[in-house]
Design a protein around this nucleic acid. Structure first.
Length: 639
DNA sequence: AAAAAAG
């Protein structure tokens, strides 16, 4: 504990020194300061400059959009400054939106004042929802100048996709193949998306056709856009409908309850934020106002933001329930429901809250509302549970780019508990300074301890876990993303869904006890067709995962240490053939349990990984692996 | 047994 305090204080000094440097070398920052930008904004600007002034450019910012960021950095800074000035001057229509949430988190906020948005709200709601609002260059720059989240799937035309269910709508090949409307097409262009990713090709027409959907696709394969694009498109063409009247009626009594037309639920706060950021992009120039609510942040500010209008809500379950109980949110007209990381949302920890939101309140029933679930994994028992929320759904399984085996090199090394730290130091010293390294530990305490250790060893690192303040969590993530702290020590909170570009190395300092967790963790690297490395420290504490890990390595055609093999053999015999390993029998891919439940037709996914067909034993027959389609994927890729 | 999610 002492160490921790020491290191935090230390870091504060470091930070102040940085700031001193900035103020001296970039005097115009003083100007910004006089405009009373908060400390964090100042710091962000300075940081930005620091990076682009030729000292250190984090890898993921390199080679990005060379035309704009011509390495000088001054343009960016000047632009930011002048934009800042402009922004103060005019109470532009869009100001209230940009300010709404970013400002709240006090990150990089040049967002303007907003303020009297009453008139704005009226005009936003009352016009033709399918027609774009005027452009706003500053906002456009803010939303779309970041790294290109579009994924280059050009090379992967043969991704295996399986869609099962009644009357499945035909997939599209380009965004033009379906009528998404003027606003969406504009925002797709601004996002520099050229072609739909495989999951988008299938999901977009399914959602447009108002079919319920259970989609199994790796996070980062464009799945957020796969539901946001068609949902927003529908909202634009359908207009506000009853929801608007309800909100207005309610507003008369000063209650200002909001009736979002669409709800997206996510299992972690950071993931909710990430989805919200995407939603802001695709709702640019529209009358749809996205909002995000989650715990750990000031609820008053979130309520005020909601009261400015909320048509699409992204939320974590706990805070949403809170909002509902406070009468700030009504789901009466919420006809689009998305569960992201759905298998997590329906597991034991979350299921009651989901039922509370979806079944025990005023949300339209299934069959009326339109429900979509997305996840990388869909174990059979979760699929069965999910039936409660879905009506005649399409099951979609989309192979991922490459797959684990092609993109991620998985290493397992035997490291005794007492040797872990020094081994980690060896790994880190062998890692390029510019690469991002994500170190997973099993406990929050362990995360603190390891971060302190690395910090004392002189590494620029930070940590994220559920006991840190939300502010610290978001700061840690942003410092990791930006490359300021290229090492992030994390618990399970960072295992799922987070899209951090350029993570070169995932280190399992502690292996998880759950193989799915393992698959999700290593899926933070090797994304978007990049190469990734995953190193796992293994010792006798990890006996429970031995067999599953071995299966994964074999399936992914990875090098298997001989000791692991014999250990798995022993373990299998010791545990008399009952254990978790059967969850993966039959391969890692998710498949529609409806296809095999009845007669074990093994149809659908064509007998992939055909070792033991699932179904025997009481275990979860269809343990998913994040899109890992097992050894027979070779056939699927056609090579 | 731990982590996540409300405070």
């Amino acid at each position: 504990m002492l160490h921790r305090e020491y290191s935090l204080k230390d870091r504060e000094i470091d930070r102040k020194a940085d700031n001193f440097f900035l103020l001296n070398f970039f005097p115009f920052i003083h100007l910004i300061k006089f405009q009373s930008v908060n400390f964090n904004s100042l710091y962000d600007v300075g940081h930005c400059l620091c990076l682009s002034a030729g000292r250190y450019i984090p890898p993921h910012l390199r080679n990005k959009d060379a035309s704009k960021n011509d390495a000088s950095g001054w343009n960016t800074a000047k632009e930011a400054y002048s934009n800042f000035g402009n922004n103060r001057g005019k109470s532009a229509f869009f100001n209230d939106r940009s300010n709404a949430n970013r400002g709240r988190f006090e990150h990089g906020g040049f967002g303007g004042g907003g303020g009297n948005s009453r008139w704005v709200e009226e005009s936003r709601d009352d016009g033709d929802w399918s027609k774009p609002m005027p452009r706003n260059e500053r906002l456009e720059h803010e939303l779309f100048s970041g790294s290109n989240t579009g994924i280059n799937f050009e090379k992967y035309d043969d991704i295996p996709v399986e869609a099962t269910g009644h009357n499945c709508p035909h997939h599209i090949e380009s965004f033009q193949d379906v009528d998404l409307g003027e606003i969406i097409m504009g925002n797709i262009a601004l996002s520099r998306y050229t072609r739909p990713t495989p999951v988008q090709k299938y999901a977009i027409p399914i959602v447009k056709a108002k079919r319920d959907l259970m989609a199994c696709a790796q996070t980062g394969s464009g799945k957020t856009a796969a539901f946001l694009l068609p949902i927003l498109s529908q909202l634009y063409t359908e207009g506000p409908g009853e929801a608007l009247n309800a909100a207005k009626e309610n507003g008369k009594y000063g209650r200002r309850k909001q009736y979002p037309m669409s709800l997206v639920l996510a299992p972690t706060r950071e993931l909710a934020l990430q989805i919200y950021d995407e939603a802001r992009k695709f709702s640019y120039r529209s009358r749809v106002r996205p909002c995000v609510v989650y715990g750990g942040a000031d609820i008053g500010q979130q309520i005020r933001d909601l009261e400015r209008g909320c048509h699409l809500l992204v939320a974590t379950p706990g805070r949403l329930v809170d909002m509902m109980e406070r009468g700030k949110i009504g789901l009466d007209y919420c006809n689009y429901l998305v569960l992201d990381e759905a298998d997590r949302m329906l597991d034991m920890g979350f299921e009651p809250q989901i039922r509370r939101i979806v079944e025990q309140d005023t949300m339209p029933h299934k069959g009326i509302r339109h429900t979509m679930m997305f996840s990388a994994t869909f174990p059979k028992e979760i699929q069965i549970l999910a039936r409660d929320f879905l009506e005649d759904y399409i099951f979609l399984a989309v192979g991922r780019v490459g797959s684990t085996s092609e993109n991620i090199t998985q290493k397992v090394v035997w490291v005794e508990e007492s040797d872990k730290r020094s081994f980690l130091l060896d790994l880190l010293s062998a890692t390029g300074k510019d690469s991002l390294t994500l170190v997973f530990v099993e406990t929050k305490k362990g995360a603190d301890a390891l971060e302190d250790f690395l910090y004392r060893e002189g590494y620029a690192c930070t940590s994220i876990h559920g006991d840190r303040s939300q502010r610290d969590r978001e700061e840690a993530l942003s410092q990791f993303r930006s490359g300021k702290c290229p090492i992030l020590v994390a618990t399970a909170v960072a295992a799922r869904g987070l899209d951090i570009s350029n993570v070169k190395h995932v280190i399992n300092f502690d292996l998880p006890s759950d193989i799915e967790e393992y698959v999700h963790r290593i899926g933070r690297t090797g994304r978007v067709g990049n190469l990734g490395l995953a190193t796992s420290f293994f010792n006798d504490k990890n006996g429970n995962i031995t067999k599953d890990l071995l299966d994964i390595l074999v399936e992914a055609k990875q090098e298997v240490p001989s000791w692991l093999e014999s250990l798995a053999y022993e373990h299998q015999h010791k545990s008399s053939n009952r254990g978790r390993s059967k969850r993966f029998a039959g391969g890692f891919g998710a498949r529609d349990y409806r296809q095999t439940a009845a007669g074990g037709s093994a149809g659908g996914f064509g007998g992939r990984g055909g070792r033991n067909q699932a179904g025997h034993g009481g275990n979860r027959g269809f343990g998913g692996g994040e899109g890992n389609y097992s050894h027979s994927q070779v056939d699927w890729w056609g090579n």
